[in-house]
Computed example of a mutant assay.
Amino acid sequence: MEILADLHTHTIASGHAYSTLSENAASAAKKGIKLLGMTDHGPSMPGAPNLYYFGNYSIIPQKLFGVQILAGVEANITSHEGELDIPLRYLVNMDIVLVGLHVICYPGGNSEQNTQAYLKAMSNPYVDIMVHPGRPEFEMDLEKIAYTSAQLGVPIEINNSSLNPEKEGAWSNCQYFARCAAMYGGPIVLGSDAHFWDRVGKLELACELAGESGIKEEQILNCSPERILAYLELRRKNRGLA
């Protein structure tokens, strides 16, 4: 399986990442990545950029080192109602919007509350991809998430960073989610969640998990930049922005 896109990466602007956009793009080009998501953390994450940063995206080149750049955000869910830390007036101008739960940005809750927050964010028409549902910090109904993803057509990420050995408990959660995703057939994205340039395009663990869980190649958007761009265009059309 050839992976041609990495939609979840961070630059030094995120506050706890250590490379520039140019460094990430150069690394992507060397690895054959054709499409790169620049998805720095939303402003409720300590050290993350303020809203003005996200409002200045028009200056970013569409391509760097031959790699197409999708300027976006990894927005944070901030409530049990699935609210985000990026106002709508910024979301409408982004190429790609990723959304996930992070301990320091979200009040926490039980499985029902966490699942509700995740699903409500997923139903937001300005959200393109939901990320790292298998993180052990948040107990959730992963089968319900996989089912809803298939029903809504909103991709869920298998996060390579979550599968590193130091993330205790994440592999089994992600494995269970991946098996549910294979069963329901919803769209999947593999993301590096790179916080340093050498991690860009590093998706071996996510590929391994997807393969052993029975996820079909046609479910995985990363295999085709054209498929990703068509999906994002459809999202914009559905909310009247295209």
Rank of each mutant, 00 (worst) to 15 (best):
L4R: 15
D6E: 09
S14P: 11
S14W: 00
L21D: 12
S22G: 04
N24Y: 00
N24I: 05
N24M: 07
A25K: 04
K31L: 01
L36M: 10
L36D: 07
M38F: 02
D40Q: 04
N50K: 13
L51H: 10
Y53C: 10
N56Q: 14
I60Y: 04
F65Q: 13
Q68S: 13
I69L: 08
A71C: 10
V73W: 00
E74G: 09
S79N: 08
H80R: 12
L84V: 08
L88Q: 13
L88K: 14
Y90E: 08
V92F: 02
N93F: 06
N93V: 08
N93K: 14
M94W: 00
L98G: 05
L98W: 06
G100P: 07
G100A: 04
C105M: 07
G109A: 05
S111K: 15
A117V: 10
L119M: 11
L119G: 08
L119Q: 05
A121D: 12
N124C: 10
V127A: 03
I129K: 03
M130G: 05
H132P: 05
H132V: 00
E137H: 10
I145G: 11
S149Y: 05
S149D: 12
A150S: 14
P155F: 01
P155I: 02
I156F: 06
N164E: 13
E166H: 11
G169F: 03
W171Y: 15
N173T: 08
C174I: 07
F177G: 06
F177D: 05
A178M: 04
A178T: 09
A181R: 06
M183R: 14
Y184N: 09
G186E: 06
I188K: 01
I188N: 02
I188L: 05
D193I: 02
D193A: 04
F196D: 13
W197Y: 15
W197L: 08
R199I: 06
V200W: 01
E204R: 09
E204C: 00
A206F: 01
E208L: 11
E208A: 09
E212L: 06
N222I: 07
C223V: 15
P225F: 01
L229M: 14
A230P: 00
A230T: 14
L232G: 06
L234T: 14
L234C: 04
R235M: 10
R236W: 03
R239I: 12
G240V: 01
